[in-house]
Structures are given as structure tokens and as C-alpha cells.
Design a binder for these strands. Sequence first.
RNA 1: GGUUCCAUAGCCAAGUUGGUAAGGCAAAGGACUGCAAAUCCUCAACCUGCGGUUCGAAUCCGCAUGGAACCUCCA
Length: 449
Amino acid sequence: MEPIKVRLYDTYEGKVRDFIPLNPPEVDIYYCGPTVYNYVHLGNFRPTVTFDLLTRFLNAIGYQVKCVSNYTDIDDKIIKAALDKHETEKELSEFYIKAYEDCLGKLNILPLYDHPKASEYINKMASFIKDLEDNHTAYQAGDDVYFRVNSDPTYGQLSKQNIADLVSGARIDVNTKKESPLDFALWKMTDDEGIKFDTPIGKGRPGWHTECVVMVNSVFKKPLIDIHGGGFDLKFPHHENEIAQSEAHNHTRLANYWMHVGFLLTNGVKMSKSLGNSILAKDVLQRHSGNAVRLFFLSTNYRAPINYTEEALDSFDKVANRYLSSVRKATYQLQLKNIKEGQIITSDKEEFLLALADDLNVANAMTVLDRELKEINTLSMKKDADLEREADLVKTFTYISDILGLKFVFDPLTDEDRVNLQAYEEARVNKDYAKSDELRKVLSAKGIL
RNA sequence: GGUUCCAUAGCCAAGUUGGUAAGGCAAAGGACUGCAAAUCCUCAACCUGCGGUUCGAAUCCGCAUGGAACCUCCA
């Protein structure tokens, strides 16, 4: 099999580009994680699933992916929520981190290379900010430190905005301390309430945009990584500001490829906490399987918006169950007939991987899965089926679904199952339908029939 | 107002350099079956509209209509 050429859409360049890692076989991926002041809504997991898929795919074709996502556990909203609940910021964020990780498990997300928390990088952030002050790309205003956006001639490249338009479109900013309304806070002094960190640049807390750049630099120990991602709404200002700081500090754009994942919508409108139309991920994952939620996200190109409906999730539950029961049944049948494990069908594998290599074209990749499923079902029904072919199909199906992050678990076949199956078939031959129906109940409950 | 993006069958959705449209869901009919479930087969598109370029456009260009996002915290 030829080495697979991967193509990915890069927001920075505004086009699909050949993906060439900086230090193959290593690939670095960082995507912005949640601010943990609350239960996250389902939309927060679309990037998670997308970059998990990208990780699994790149690993499958021979790369060694280091995928990293952060927790923003220092933030104004966290401070406020902690005050409201009479908890410390740490107690609050730890609680919601745990809730988030519970969802990661249900969604079958691969363990990340690292999951840094902003609160653990404060000193590095402070010294990063100090550097920016020293090279005059940052300035103090009152007790706060701001980034001087005018210092970056490339500002706006990612979000395709120009500074003049941004200034004219900017809302009236009461903060007159800033040189320009576009300047953003790198460090905020904390007054009386809320968590504060004692650092050489003062007692306060870092701004969100600084947190991510510093964590990227620190975790990967390099100024430029392969892929930086997140939701579409992070393009501006968050990622734009990360790039600006990285340019000012390291003279790099921070990541070679910038990937942005489309929104989850409810009734055609973006799901967001401020709009009050959030559906919490933990609730959805209680009603629907992780497989179903994955299939739902995977049903649309990662860059396009996707509309949330319970009906859609219901239908993917059915699809997921169908996948499971077919694979389980076929696996049991092969075991009963003592057929050894099959081989991965190279042509199917290649067709699947090539589809994903095309900027994660999951829709085309999934056609391989559905085609195999159909053949597995057909072979399962036949009396004189080519069992080796069936074994190969099951093997390939499992391989492919694993890359998609789908997980099919079922109990191994027991001796009792074997006995029951034989008795069932004998009863049917003898037209003892009362007995066969009873055994059928038992066997189908286990998914053997 | 500025900047991006989208518009394909009842629903979801693919369509890489233009050559007459993958797949999934739902519905219907059929096959199989002692019955049921499951499964398999069959079945759907004037590609939002109007112009233009071309031998030929869902695919390129323009206009219109409809929708979304960003410009403020947001995955």
C-alpha cells in the first residue's frame, strides 16, 4: 500500500493543503478545551470527537500523534461561579473536570498525551507576558497588561479581518485605559474577590488568550506545532490573539495548520450557553449511547454546521445497535464453527483510509462500513457461506469502526450458549416450537440469534 | 455596517482539476420464516431561482432569494 497523502483544510491559508508534519512520524495536535465552570453542552464535544478521529486516523497510517487539549480553570466565569457557590475555584473546576471526563469515557475518546490545566502554568504565563512587555508588544495600563495589536502586521490573517474594519465594528469599549479597542488583556489584576496569583508581574490572573499559547509552548516544548484546532467561534478573537502573541514572542504562527470545527445547532441556531439553548452533554449521553453520539457527529463534514434533534440521535441509536448486533451475531457464528480470526481486507482498508485522508471525508469512508455490514448480514444468513470471507469482513469492520472510535463490546460465547443453540436447532427440526421459542428468547437476549 | 460560510430527494448527506448525481434514515412493495424479530431485494432528485462562460455545469462567474457564524464570553 502506497503511503497515504493526507489533505486538511487550513483556516489560516483558507484552503485544503497537503498535510506535512514538521517532525514525522510525530504529529502534534492541540485543541482548546472547555472552561470548566459548568456542565458542558453537547456542542463542546464536536471538536473532541473530530480531533479524536483525526488522531486515530493519523495513528493508523503510521504517525505518532500527541494530541493535547487543555482545561481553562482560571477565568472570570469560574471566579464568579465559585463565589456564588461558596467554593474555591479549584473545587469548582475539579468537579466539572470530572464530569467532563466522564463524558470523554462514554464517547470512547482516546487518552490524550496531556491535559494541561491553566492554573498549573501561571508562572510560565507571567514570564511570557514579561517578555512581551520587554519587546514592547505589551504594555501596562493601570494594573492590567494588554497586548498591542498594532504591533502585529499579520493580525487578522486567520479570521480574514482587517484591523480597520475591526476597529470600526468594535462595540464601544468603556475601558479607556487601552490604546486601541482591539488590544486584549494578557494579565488582569484581581481586586478584592477571586483567586489571585502572586507573580513578578503582579498579583492577578492571566487572560484566556495567553493561557493557551503558553500551554501549547510548554507542553510541546516548541514554538510551532502541527495542528491547532477548536470550534469556529474560537477563530476570532481567541486564536487570532494566540497567533499574535506567538508572533510577538516566537515569530511563528504557533501552528502550521489551523482547523476549525463547525457548530452544533439547535433549531438552526448555534447552541451556546448564553443563548440558553444548551443541551448538556451528560444528559444526552444518558439517553443515547456514545456510539450514537459519535455517529451523529460523524454524519456531517466536520466543518459544516450540524443540527441537533432527539430524532436524529434516536435514529443513530438504532444504527449503532444494528452494527453491534450484526457484528456480534457474526462473531458468535464464526466462533461456533471454530473459524479463526480473519485478515483485514486491504482494498477496503485502503478505500476507507483514502476517504479520511481527504480532509476527513467521513461520509465516503462510512460507505465502506455499510457495504461490509450488508455482506456480513448476507453471509450470516446463508447456509453454505464463505466463512473465511465472513471472518475477514468482521475483522475489517472492527478495524474500521475502531478508527471511527466506535466501540462494540459483547460477552464471549459460553459453553451453555453452545448447548442452547444446538438444542434450539434440534427443537425446530422436531417442530417442538414451544421449546424452540423458549430457547430463542434466551439466545436472542444474548444476541446470538 | 464589515468579514466569512452554506442552499443536493420526506429527513441527514457525499460529490478533489466541469462530462448528465455515493451512502444512511424514514415510508412502501417483495423475498425468506411454523410465527415473530432480524436480514436481504426493489423503489426516489428538472441539484433554491435567474442569467453568463462552455460542445457540456450540482460543480466556474454574476445577480437574486433564503439561512448561519464571527466582529463581545462562547467548542
